[in-house]
Design a protein around this nucleic acid. Sequence first.
DNA 1: TCGCAAAGTGTAAGTGTGACACTTTGTAAA
DNA 2: TTTACAAAGTGTCACACTTACACTTTGCGA
Lengths: 252, 252
Amino acid sequence: MSLNNMSSKNNLELNPRISVDCVIFGFDLNQLKVLVIERSISDSDKQILTLPGDLIYEAENLEIAADRVLFELTGLETIFLEQVGAFGDTDRLNKEADKKWLRAVREEPEARVITIAYFSLVNIHEYAPQASSFAKSAAWIPLNEIDELAFDHFDILQTALKKLKNKIRIQPVGFNLLPEKFTLSQLQKLYEAILGRELDKRNFRRKMLKLQLVEMLEERQEKVPHKPSQYFKFNETNYNILIENGFDNFGF
Amino acid sequence: MSLNNMSSKNNLELNPRISVDCVIFGFDLNQLKVLVIERSISDSDKQILTLPGDLIYEAENLEIAADRVLFELTGLETIFLEQVGAFGDTDRLNKEADKKWLRAVREEPEARVITIAYFSLVNIHEYAPQASSFAKSAAWIPLNEIDELAFDHFDILQTALKKLKNKIRIQPVGFNLLPEKFTLSQLQKLYEAILGRELDKRNFRRKMLKLQLVEMLEERQEKVPHKPSQYFKFNETNYNILIENGFDNFGF
DNA sequence: TCGCAAAGTGTAAGTGTGACACTTTGTAAA
DNA sequence: TTTACAAAGTGTCACACTTACACTTTGCGA
């Protein structure tokens, strides 16, 4: 098939199924978590874990499809969503369990599938599981407890995490993962979870306060068995000013 | 169609054509250039410009397909190649000229196409145009002279450029665009072209020399009507040492 | 030999980063 | 009510990096 020939149909040409898969990050109990689907293989007790996803509709834009998956699963709209990339290597179905499960749900394991992956950051406390049978088997699993996923989903997860790491150096996207009000310690734990390393408390606070991305609230913690922390909220106005000035280096 | 039903075929389900498109960057005469294909619309003198691309073969991995397009077009192998992402909005064919051209080559303009875009960095002087009729209509166009491309290719180009900008802050990928030996001024011009802003000569040289990413050669320019410049080459050993130490901030 | 045009060079001020340890404060248990 | 606890909160110093800035050098060609 020659390069300038985009018109002829022939048997070399790919005719795959196209899906979206979503890596949905949440943050809870100082841990970064991912929303995964537990699927049972009919003839055993084993479960396989997958990322939530679906085939894309005919008249649907890619990002809309990802939005839809997210909404149908979490009840959340207009959340942070960014493309991770396309995945679809021919060896994506090299695990026996995957094939077995596909056979069980009457899919052909041989079919080529290309998936467009997205990652999103959600406030885990606004998570409102939907009624679909799909959502019923969804679970928040701590990132560091996931060491295997079906198909190429583990690869997708790794890539999404890498993107998130890079992103947070350039844009303070982490606030999407936190509730409206939060403590600076929570924020720091979040950064530590994403970056995968510990940060110095004083240096971290200095940086955040200097940039004026957080604003101190009147409110403070209550009933904690230690000195209560001030609550803060994200200052979007200051964030937008920074962005307009081309600021894109948060020094992590 | 419910979210947990990935098995049923129905008329909502997408069955698109899948292609790869490549944004091939080169650097020449202190300008960042892109390799585009000039396609004639049969019934007029107008040309439309597209990114080089092709449909993906049935048994072919995505990246392999991009490699193939690159090789068939440029004769180059094992070059820097990275995925930009998947593009395939339903309105990608909103320009009349695009539809006209597709009709002329017997494509249905209504067909949904999803394309996986890659960008690569090539040494423009090793570019060896191949014999295909495709390659014959290829041309290196300076980036800043491109203000329209067919389909969603302009969007793809912009996104690729953004990725390149980010990448060069983290990894000194620019050397892929230069010949073996180059002057520090060339290197600086390259960085300026990618970043879209001017850099201070002394500061730039200091940074590059301090990191020891470049190594001075014996050779110098000849027959230039001014003080001849030293030639340098990329020091891959030192680069690998930096990477192993987790260094990923080149301060741009 | 003179002019040109780009190469090449150093410093000082300011800003951000990383490392480091003790005091404060509210709760809950004794 | 006193006390122990556990996390919150706070300042400084040394160092590295960044930015801004102007003149001299060198080879070629007219």
